[in-house]
Amino acid sequence: MGLLSPQDEIVLKQHLSTLSKPVQLVLFTQAFGGSESGQVAKQILDEIAGLNDKITVVEKSFVLDLEDKAKYKVDKAPAIVILSDDVDTRMRMYGAPTGYEFVGLVEAILVAGTGNIDLEPETMAWIQAVTTPTHIQVFSTPT
């Protein structure tokens, strides 16, 4: 049984129809010693990818794919790296994207696949004026 309800799928499919660029969701999981959330993350990503052919899921092993892990600077799993037409968006999700995290994932996919960033012009100007590496970590829970 799918994690997304038929109603969720209809709404999501409509949102995703605005994608103009391919989006790759690179999922790092740990087969042994990893948590179940890796499998949940995979199922969610597969269900999303099934709704729009511009979205693909690329599976990587957190233990074996060391080159990719280093490339995307992934230091924990499960991790989802969001690429826009193979270009790293520098948006990452750690843990299974359920609950509120799911909304964040969909928003990240929309940004990656449309190039549209829904921010006020003034805020955008502040962000674009940043000249030093900035690492933002947002902690949340599914409920």
């Binding site: 948590s35 924990k76 948006m91 750690y94 843990g95 921010l119 674009q128 590496p133 933002i136």
Partner: peptide, 26 residues
């Protein structure tokens, strides 16, 4: 923010999954 500036990296972290990190950042 990450999408708007290549110097910015944004991580969304599920707090209950990564308890060590959650403790580290209180």
């Amino acid at each position: 923010m990450a999408a708007a500036n290549p110097l910015i990296t944004a991580d969304a972290i599920e707090a209950t999954e990564f308890m060590d990190l959650s403790r580290k950042y209180r």
